[in-house]
């Protein structure tokens, strides 16, 4: 692996997104370094999830550029598909494939997209399931799992593609409170292993503990960013202050 070099892992330049007339992203500039954990916070409707979804083109932005590992992602299906192999995504509602077992969910990407042999994929999948603490669930269907277990499988499924960046779109928002910890635990492990992560979340505790940098968004703009201790303890912008006083 090369050392942190001349390019950023993810770079977003002047990104604009409209839903009809609604200007949901109003010129976002953001970069994420290799191995960095960036947490995006902000009120609902601030555009944070949309921003995340624009990074891997699940939403098509109208203006602006995305660079992954220094290369511009052209708006061509082939380029986007290739980019997505390197950019993993974890969803709020897990989106596991219900017609496949846990193991089949995890090997699906490597086998179908990367054309890895099934045996190799299974070895990797078992390793990943062990890592998220679910090796005993490999032959179970998702319907049998708790929300926390589903989300951990979803993380393993994403990791099976050996991504360089992981996007987390409110990964704990659909979970019962007592299940949040197990998912955050897996994410903390990943952060420790220097996975590059962009996390949209309402878990301020996680942001404080794990984030290298926190971004506060409101009304489609980045209002403030900084190290978690700065941003949480000493916010400069009025809107950041107002938001933080409401969530604490």
């Amino acid at each position: 692996m090369t050392k942190i070099s001349d390019y950023k892992m993810v770079e977003i330049k002047n990104l604009h997104k409209y839903f009809g007339k609604l200007h949901v992203l109003q010129g976002i500039d953001l970069f994420v370094d290799e191995g960095e954990v960036v947490v995006i916070i902000g009120p609902s409707g601030s555009g944070k999830s949309t921003l995340l979804r624009c990074v891997n083109f699940l939403e098509k932005s109208q203006r602006g550029d995305i660079f992954i590992e220094g290369s511009l992602i052209e708006r061509k299906q082939k380029t986007i598909n290739q980019m997505r192999q390197k950019v993993g995504m974890v969803f709020q509602h897990f989106n596991l494939f219900p017609h496949m077992t846990v193991l089949q969910n995890v090997i699906e990407g490597p086998v179908q997209v990367k054309k890895v042999t099934k045996n190799e994929a299974v070895i990797l999948a078992e390793e990943l399931l062990k890592k998220v603490g679910l090796e005993d669930k490999r032959d179970v269907y998702p319907a049998m799992l708790s929300g926390g277990q589903k989300q951990r499988v979803a993380i393993a499924r994403s990791l099976a593609m050996k991504p360089d960046v992981m996007l987390f779109d409110e990964p704990t928002s659909a979970l019962d409170p007592e299940l949040v910890g197990e998912v955050l635990g897996v994410m903390k492990d990943l952060a420790r292993e220097k996975m590059t992560m962009i996390v949209v979340t309402h878990e301020m505790g996680f942001a404080k503990e794990v984030a290298d940098r926190v971004i506060f968004m409101d009304e489609g703009k980045i209002i403030e960013e900084g190290k978690p201790e700065e941003l949480f303890e000493n916010p400069k912008n009025e809107r950041t202050k107002a938001f933080l006083s409401r969530v604490y």
């Binding site: 598909n81 997505r84 995504m89 989106n95 179908q112 997209v113």
Partner: peptide, 14 residues
């Protein structure tokens, strides 16, 4: 659910 398609596409599937 649309999330199924999104999950599949986010793995790089066509």
């Amino acid at each position: 659910d649309i999330g199924q398609k999104e999950a599949a596409r986010s793995l790089g599937m066509t």
